[in-house]
Design a protein around this nucleic acid. Structure first.
Lengths: 209, 209, 209, 209
DNA sequence: CATGAATGAGTCTTCATTCAT
DNA sequence: AATGAATGAAGACTCATTCAT
């Protein structure tokens, strides 16, 4: 689906509002008002509110698949390096599109939109398959342990990042870093998250201390 | 707040529906119909839909604080044992009240209800303080590492459990365990989660392999 | 209809609230709460909200008829003295039961309750008949003019008093008498109203300057 | 606020119904049905039922101020002529917009809508000020008495007209004029009211018989 | 192509009243 | 005799969507 400039503008406003108030908590009028367009435009451009949500999903998720797959295929990297890059990619993706990831948590929790649910699941399955292959490769090369629960490991990565993203204001308060500039704090947070998860994964994957 | 039998019945129906469809996605009529009561009863008993949500929150969260604090004070347990018990307690709590935890993810994501948000935050802060003390105790006794990011560690526990709970159907499919009885699968899942997170925490907290 | 103590208590609370918020703007729950009784009592004692209103009307109006008629029959008074006494009686009645008269203005404006409307009309007609007789008596005695529009005259009395009662706060402000004690101001107002209306009536009824 | 044709249509239906049944006694559905429009239109056009009432008030009162002030400034008229014109203007205004004036009596009685109450008060204050000036002018010119209670005088005018308007059916019955055509009766009533009030005012204002 | 006007269905809440106790 | 619990009906209002222009 090709999106023109105005459609992008609408969809990004919707993304922000959905993240702030939830899908059902946001009216198309809210979106139209904030985006500075006519109410009828949402139906006109996307068919319905639901369909707009699907368009948003497609826009944000579409690119992910390709990047992951190409990363995996890179022959110049060791299995552990690949895993670490996956972690950093995920952290970057979530932190860059925080609104979208907040929305997705809500969408996955409620079974409302089957189209999105199905698409989200297929992405997750594809990711799991790719990572499983990567793990198997590491095991064959003798750098990874034998028994590894890939799903739980992925859940730890995804869950930790989501949880941290959702409660970053609180993290900031707890660590007394309210005065730090936003960008600097985000960089710090991403670095710490990266080290944290890599440490966890190393403990799961390898026999090293 | 004392809740009578009918109020509990209504609140539990609401809990399930909120988990399935979200707060805004569930109408009071839906709840009343499923609970087999009159629509007006929600306002009659709780004052409003919002207030009912707060009553649900209070009902589910009220007991948590006390249990955590008493666990921590138990002198007969080592710091690591306490941490491990905390993990198991959390897993049990989430898996037993899956609906409620799904709802909470949605509530925390959207800033809708300030009363709940505030209460939820105070619970989180109290928990973090308690765990921090526990960690400090372990450090003083020389069994835990010096530098530990308590918040990230907690985020890993909470995030992993939530993520796993949310996607358990998918976990089942991936591991080809659809034929396993529900209860057996849940037990298996909890055991694996427990071992998984304890392993992670050991890697974070101690110097052992 | 005999009213017991509790019924009087309810009816007087209702009277105040109806005056403040209008009949439809006051809920039976409001009345019950303020009167400190159970909600069901209103239906229990009066049958319905509407019937309670009728009971209130009967309570307040019942006594009026007799007093007016006996006044008229008093042989020791001149026609003008009788008219003047009628004026003072009316002023006293309205100022003493301000709440009730506020309500009546609303009831008469809207055609809601036929029972009350009919009763109110019969009171008005009876009064007009009595006054007409009184006027005729004065005319026969040669102290009153020939052509007198009794209705318009009565409307002036009733209208002036109502209007003044309704806007007394404003009258007080305009005349800079906010510091005067309530009771003192009410006395002043009644005296001025009395003189004012008697002056008007004299101009209508007699040929004197 | 500019009102389009449909808004006027709705507002005039509402005016009639409010006069017949009171503000709280009239539902937006009643108004919509009688005006032949969709229920949602009331909120769509005016924001709320309350706001519609305010729009009605503004529509009816807006023009009054200017007319009164310009009348007062007319140098070619004597003070008494001005007072008499004020009386006729008031009678015409009330008799022409009977519904609106019925509503206003209810609104002023109950303290419900602060916006309208405030606006109504400011109109009344302005009118009193203008009339006061007019009276002072007459006193300076020696045609009016020294001691005049402007407020009570105005209350007599407003009260008499309102009272007569409200009970005109009864006036008709009493005078056996049911067979007279409506328009003829209204003219008669206005003429009589005019003479009646002018007589009263002359008695208050001047020393003539 | 884009939109202002309009709407039917749905929202939550409040209402006066009833009924079992 | 008196009431707490309960309810169907109605309340005002918001919603996503449609349609004529």
């Amino acid at each position: 689906m090709e999106l023109n400039e105005k459609q992008i503008q609408i969809i990004e406003t919707a993304e922000r509002l959905f993240a702030e108030r939830g899908f059902d908590g946001t009216s198309v009028r809210d979106i139209a008002d904030e985006a500075g367009v006519n109410v009828a435009m949402i139906s006109y451009y996307f068919g319905s509110k639901e369909k707009m949500m699907e368009a948003l999903f497609e826009l944000r998720v579409g690119s992910v698949k390709i990047r992951v797959e190409s990363l995996i295929k890179d022959e110049s990297l060791s299995p552990l390096e690949k895993v670490n890059m996956l972690i950093d990619e995920h952290i970057d993706r979530v932190m860059q599109k925080q609104c979208f990831h907040k929305i997705m948590m809500g969408v996955v929790a409620t079974n409302k939109n089957p189209a999105i649910l199905k698409a989200a699941n297929s992405v997750k399955i594809r990711n799991a398959e790719v990572v499983t292959e990567l793990i198997k490769d590491g095991q064959k090369k003798g750098v990874f342990k034998k028994k590894i629960d890939v799903i739980l490991m992925m859940n730890t990565m995804v869950g930790t990042v989501s949880q941290t993203m959702m409660s970053q204001t609180y993290y900031r308060e707890f660590n007394k870093q309210q005065d730090m500039p936003d960008e600097e704090f985000e960089l710090l947070l991403k670095r710490r998250l990266s080290i944290h998860i890599k440490t966890l994964f190393k403990a799961i994957l390898t026999n090293e201390a």
